[in-house]
């Protein structure tokens, strides 16, 4: 669906995107991860034709961005980081005016509105001014706006920033549901690493460069490892074994490279493993390990 080759973009001295290449397959949920300022939004702006690139090639659905931008625009929908709808107008008016940009009017619009309402369930507040809606309600309307033209490719630029965990979860459920129903490719950028857990493919961007890519499992296995959590363990035995551990409330945790290693410990020291869990590394750990950043640095 998307093919990016050696893409670069500079803003004066700032190199926002540095020679990146990647591919997004048809129908997959593609996650583009990075902290604020990593170059995610710049890349999305280039892919959607809002920003020029300095070098490289971009193909969307086999259409060259340099020459077929108008055709590409008919294929894409975008949910921006912040709502970009008209705050003084109702959700209905917002959707009606945006739909007309794709020549969706009259009966066609009403039909599409009903379809989107059945997916996103916004009829209860459709006639309320947009600025009177809650964050979650606004996001639903943003998504509905992006889906108006039946896009084959949906860009989600940090769609859950500023939303509470419950609403974030609901939004992702809705997106996943729509992705399956409408058979769309979803290009997700986020700095909440855990949101990429369900992605088919993940690319991690740091300071404008791709620093890692793969499926979430591949990345976790390669960069995060597993953690063993022992609750109320026999500390003497633990110290005797000589495992380096970290104290946590009600116990300790220690890192192992593979899940196999956990099995070995359990078989070898069964008395130590009375109350325990083995947890796969998180995407946060992947990101921190990949980019070499420590939590302390983040705090600074």
């Amino acid at each position: 669906m998307i093919k990016v080759e050696h893409l670069s973009k500079n803003f004066k001295e700032v190199k926002a995107v540095k020679d990146i290449s990647f591919e997004v397959k048809d129908g997959e949920l593609f996650a583009f991860l990075g902290v604020n300022g990593a170059g995610k939004s710049t890349t999305i702006s280039i892919l959607t034709g809002l920003l020029s690139k300095d070098s490289g090639k971009v193909f969307i659905d086999n259409l060259d961005l340099d020459t077929k931008l108008d055709e590409i625009k008919k294929e894409i929908g975008i949910v921006f980081q912040n709502s970009v709808l008209d705050v003084s107008l109702s959700s209905y008016d917002n959707l009606k005016y945006r739909a007309s940009l794709y020549s969706i009017r009259g009966e066609d619009f009403n039909k599409r509105l009903n379809e989107l309402n059945s997916l996103l369930n916004f009829s209860g507040y459709m006639n309320r001014p947009f600025n009177k809606l809650s964050g979650g309600q606004k996001r639903r309307i943003d998504i509905a706006r992006a889906l108006l033209p039946h896009p084959r490719l949906l860009f989600l630029d940090e769609p859950t920033t500023g939303l509470d965990p419950f609403t974030r979860k609901r939004i992702y459920e809705v997106i996943e549901n729509i992705r399956k129903k409408e058979n769309m490719t979803v290009f997700l950028t986020t700095h909440y690493m855990e949101e990429a857990n369900d992605a088919s493919h993940v690319v991690i961007l740091d300071e404008g460069q791709i620093v890692a890519e793969g499926t979430p499992l591949e990345l976790k296995n390669q960069y995060a490892g597993d953690y063993v959590y022992l609750y109320h363990p026999d500390m003497d035995l633990l110290n005797q074994i000589g495992i380096e551990y970290e104290k946590i409330i009600d116990g300790v945790r220690f890192k192992i490279n593979t899940t196999q290693k956990a099995s070995e410990y359990i078989n070898k020291y069964p008395t130590l493993f009375k109350d325990y869990e083995v947890i796969k590394g998180r995407m946060d750990d992947v990101f921190l390990n990949v980019t070499g950043k420590k939590i302390e640095e983040e705090k600074k």
Partner: peptide, 13 residues
Amino acid sequence: VNHIKDDLLTSPL
């Protein structure tokens, strides 16, 4: 200023 133009221009307008 409010980036609404971004949204309008991502359509085939």
